[in-house]
């Protein structure tokens, strides 16, 4: 790691002001930041430790929704009784991520902000060319080994995957990200690489995520997160899906459905086409499998990740079947 200064913030506006200086970064659980600093990807001049800021780690659940403080740890939120009951997809996404130790360290705010696991991105010594690290330097992944790269939301500048799980659940459930200065619907929080793959969210310098708000809904209460990977645990998703489902009184017709994908796109990926195809339809395996094909509209595969196209559809279908009670 490069040499850096360490400051411990005691108040939100103080932290915000400190971080306006270029080279200054917030330090939360450190599980992304310290890791990337060791890789030489992040080279902070100063770290502002925000973990001791007051009032940012509460989890409150009421009729309107769940408000999860940005400094709450993944493990705390995962086992919160109200979250587990009313937002099962959120709890499951957290529990299926990383390891128990990492979940004890990592915060919700940091989790949203985690960065890609693209092997070239993480190896600056070996691969100087990476548009995400340095716009205009090129992309080392294109035309190369890309089993773990994205098929959706890519650009000719960057095909790196967004690796997180939680944000997929939050995207399906229409969460809002609260910051020191505004409220941002999660669908607008993450930005696709386009020609500026270094910009991953709309956060401005010095802006701090303070909480995530998940609105209450029947679909949220009947939701799940399905994660598929070669290793049974402690691995990022090869493909994943968060699904929330609300049925009509008849118990068979879909009133509301929310679908988002992980492990396949450059940002958490809402599959509105699947939702539209199923809204008002009757639950049934064939219907669901057919509709799920819309999840990968516009997908493009690169060398070795073509399998994700088929896999994503199946993961979406199975997740819908799971919340729909189809065994």
């Amino acid at each position: 790691m490069n040499d850096f200064d360490y400051l411990r913030a005691t108040a939100l506006d103080e932290a915000s002001t400190l971080a306006k200086t270029p080279g200054t970064m917030f330090l939360a659980g450190g599980t992304t930041l310290i890791d990337l600093a060791k890789c030489g990807v992040e080279r902070p001049g100063t770290l502002v430790d925000i973990t001791r800021l007051p009032d940012l780690s509460a989890v409150t659940v009421d009729e309107a929704g769940a408000t999860i403080g940005a400094l709450a740890t993944m493990s705390r939120v995962a086992v919160d009784a109200a979250v587990t009951e009313r937002y099962p997809a959120v709890s499951e996404a957290l529990l299926l991520a990383a390891s128990a130790q990492l979940r004890n360290m990592a915060t919700i705010g940091g989790n949203l902000m985690q960065r890609t696991r693209c092997a070239y991105f993480r190896d600056p010594a070996g691969y100087p060319a990476c548009n995400k690290r340095m716009p205009g330097s090129g992309c080392s992944a294109l035309e190369n080994v890309t089993r773990d790269h994205a098929i959706l939301g890519t650009s000719d500048q960057c095909i790196a995957l967004y690796p997180g799980d939680l944000s997929v659940a939050l995207t399906a459930l229409g969460a809002t990200v609260r910051t020191t200065s505004r409220e941002i619907p999660i669908a607008r929080f993450f930005v696709e690489p386009g020609d500026r793959p270094d910009r991953e969210t709309v956060l401005e310098r010095g802006e701090i995520v303070t909480a995530v708000h998940v609105p209450a809904s029947a679909a949220a209460a009947n939701s799940t997160y399905l994660k598929v990977r070669d290793r049974q645990s402690y691995e990022f998703a090869a493909a994943s899906a968060a699904v929330g489902l609300e049925l009509e009184e008849d118990g068979r017709t879909i009133r509301d459905i929310r679908v988002a994908l992980g492990g396949v796109a450059t940002v958490p990926w809402r599959a509105e086409a699947v939702e539209a195809a199923l809204r008002g339809r009757r639950l049934g395996e064939t219907t669901i499998r057919e509709a799920s094909r819309a999840a990968v509209e516009g997908a493009r595969s690169w060398y070795a990740n073509g399998y994700k196209i088929e896999l994503a559809c199946r993961v979406v279908a199975r997740a819908i079947m799971e919340v729909g009670g189809i065994k």
Binding site: R117, A119, N144, D230, R231, S233, E235
Partner: peptide
């Protein structure tokens, strides 16, 4: 699980860590 993935251009080992070179966990 286990696979040393090599960059076909320059022979760099792309799975040179314990997350990308996957060994069995307790859960496997």
């Amino acid at each position: 699980l286990e696979e040393g993935v090599t960059d076909p251009r320059n022979g760099r080992i792309l799975s040179s860590n314990l997350a990308d070179y996957r060994i069995a966990t307790n859960a496997d």
